[in-house]
């Protein structure tokens, strides 16, 4: 009987190892982060100020030379990255013979891409209410707690409407508070779901390291440095981008 349980555990371990395909999204989003750096070139002096950029909570800045281009870059990267990852998992599944579901991952990235609309609603609505503007600190805390609650609801298989509402609201509040890394919050959400589906300790560790890098990047990037340079504005993407690329390479090396 113990032998049987041991054999089944070995089968499970082997199946999990064979279906891992996580280096691709890590490398894709990591490389895309570094490719974005030229788009963070500042506009000195400010020639054209964009009054309202609907994509500004996905990592855009108004002080860069081409704010709309940068605002469009990240949604396109997120969309292409999500579809390419789903394709990659499907192809790998066909090649190896065991396929991981990417439905949850695509759903998480869709939440990350759709939440900015809610964020923009909050930016418009909150000053018109008694609450006023939320401070960055409290809003970040509230957003993180609501996302954590959504993750617990998802693991408990709670009603989908409840989980979805919590995930969208949490992400929206977090992107509202941390708009400079809004795109990385969406990527992080997708990676957390993918790590849970892959059931890989290594991938979970890489995702945790990425989230730590994201927090450090949000806390310590010199966004207000004057005069602004492509490096001071773009440095917000370097640490998460570095964590993604290193995580992808570690995943490739370990197979």
């Amino acid at each position: 009987m113990t032998d049987l349980l041991g054999d089944l555990a070995e089968l499970r371990r082997r199946a999990r190892e064979d279906r891992h395909a996580y280096p691709f999204p890590l490398l894709f989003f990591g490389i895309a982060s570094f490719l974005a750096i030229p788009l963070y070139a500042p506009s000195n002096p400010v020639v054209r100020q964009v009054e309202w950029n609907p994509l500004s909570v996905l990592g855009a800045h108004t002080e860069v030379r081409h704010p709309l281009l940068l605002g469009l870059y990240w949604p396109v990267v997120l969309l292409v990255g999500a579809l390419a990852t789903a394709w990659w998992y499907h192809r790998r599944g066909a090649r190896v013979g065991i396929e991981t579901s990417t439905r949850g991952y695509l759903g998480a990235l869709a939440i990350g891409l759709g939440s900015p609309l809610v964020s923009m609603g909050l930016i418009w609505l909150l000053p018109r209410t008694a609450i006023g503007f939320w401070g960055q600190g409290p809003a970040t805390g509230i957003g993180a707690i609501v996302i954590a609650a959504a993750t617990v609801l998802w693991r408990w298989r709670a009603p989908r409407v409840l989980t979805l509402t919590a995930a969208v609201l949490g992400t929206a509040v977090l992107q509202y508070a941390q708009s400079a890394i809004g795109q990385f919050i969406a990527i992080g959400l997708g990676l957390v779901v993918l790590a849970a589906v892959e059931r890989s300790t290594r991938f979970t560790t890489i995702t945790a390291a990425y989230l730590v890098a994201l927090c450090l990047s949000a806390a310590f990037t010199p966004l207000t440095l004057t005069p602004a340079t492509a490096w001071s504005l773009g440095s917000v993407v370097m640490l998460p981008g570095f964590a993604l690329v290193v995580g992808g390479l570690v995943g490739l090396r370990r197979g």
């Binding site: 089944l8 089968l11 499970r12 199946a15 999990r16 279906r19 599944g93 066909a94 013979g97 065991i98 396929e99 991981t100 579901s101 059931r199």
Partner: peptide, 11 residues
Amino acid sequence: LTVAAEAKRVE
């Protein structure tokens, strides 16, 4: 069943 339960589908 153990292997199939680990993935979306198995060949």
